[in-house]
Measured scan of single mutants.
Amino acid sequence: MLEGKVKWSNSEKGFGFIEVEGQDDVFVHFSAIQGEGFKTLEEGQAVSFEIVEGNRGPQAANVTKEA
């Protein structure tokens, strides 16, 4: 699992980007967020995730919010 911080997200469009130190930003779709209820990410929020190869390149999977 990698750790990063949410660079920005748009809940209306359903995606955002995660900033990882020393690496390119990672695309995240809201379907990759683990948990119940409305899935949102806040700018600056710490997250853990895996990287998978998506249709348009690397993207985050199994995203969990850190406490």
Rank of each mutant, 00 (worst) to 15 (best):
L2F: 13
F15E: 00
F17D: 00
A67Q: 12
W8C: 09
S48Q: 13
S31Y: 05
W8M: 05
G44A: 04
G16T: 02
I51V: 10
Q23P: 03
F30G: 06
G57K: 04
F27I: 01
L41R: 00
S31M: 04
K65A: 12
Q45P: 00
A60T: 01
I51D: 02
I33Q: 03
A67V: 13
I18M: 02
V52Q: 07
E21T: 10
G35N: 07
G44Q: 03
E3Q: 15
V20R: 07
A46Q: 12
V52H: 07
E42F: 12
L41E: 00
G44E: 02
D25Q: 02
Q45N: 08
A32T: 08
E12W: 10
G14T: 13
H29F: 06
E21F: 12
E42P: 08
F17P: 01
F27P: 00
P58M: 09
E53P: 09
G57E: 01
E42D: 10
S9C: 15
Q34S: 11
F15L: 03
G57C: 06
G57Q: 02
G14R: 13
F30N: 06
F38H: 13
I51H: 01
V26S: 00
E19H: 11
G44D: 03
G54S: 09
K7G: 04
L41I: 07
K13T: 05
F30Q: 06
E42Q: 12
S9P: 02
N10S: 11
E21M: 11
G16W: 15
G14H: 11
K7P: 02
K5R: 13
I18P: 01
K5P: 00
E50W: 10
T64S: 10
K7M: 02
D25T: 03
G14V: 05
N10W: 07
G44I: 00
I33D: 04
E3F: 15
G44L: 01
K13E: 06
P58R: 14
K7H: 05
G16Q: 01
E43V: 15
E36G: 11
E50K: 08
T40D: 09
I33R: 00
G22T: 03
V26W: 04
G22N: 07
G54I: 05
G4A: 00
G16Y: 10
F27A: 00
A67R: 12
V6F: 03
E21D: 12
A46G: 09
S9F: 15
A67W: 10
A32H: 07
E43F: 13
Q59A: 06
T64I: 14
E50F: 10
E21V: 12
K65L: 15
T64W: 13
A67T: 13
D25K: 02
K39V: 09
S11A: 14
G14P: 03
V52S: 05
K13L: 11
T40Q: 09
G54K: 05
T40W: 14
L2N: 06
L2Q: 08
T64Q: 12
W8A: 02
G54F: 05
N10M: 05
N55A: 14
V28L: 07
D24I: 10
G57T: 03
V28H: 03
L2H: 10
G37H: 08
N55V: 14
K65E: 05
G22L: 04
G35Y: 05
I33C: 06
V28Y: 15
G16I: 05
L2I: 12
G16E: 00
I33W: 04
Q23T: 07
K39R: 10
A60Y: 02
Q45H: 07
E36M: 10
F38R: 12
G54N: 06
A60P: 02
G35L: 06
F38K: 13
P58K: 11
G35S: 08
E12A: 13
T64K: 14
R56H: 11
F38M: 13
A46I: 15
A46L: 15
E50M: 11
F38G: 10
E43S: 12
Q34D: 08
F38E: 14
I51F: 03
E36F: 09
S11I: 14
L41V: 07
E36W: 07
G57W: 04
S48V: 13
V20E: 00
D24T: 09
Q59H: 08
M1W: 11
G37M: 07
E43T: 14
N62H: 09
F49R: 01
F17R: 00
G4E: 00
E12K: 13
E66K: 15
W8S: 03
Q45C: 11
E66H: 15
R56F: 13
F17H: 01
E21Q: 11
V47Q: 01
R56N: 10
H29N: 05
Q59C: 07
G54A: 06
G22K: 04
S31N: 08
Q45Y: 06
I33G: 05
A32R: 02
K39G: 10
S9E: 04
N62P: 01
V26T: 03
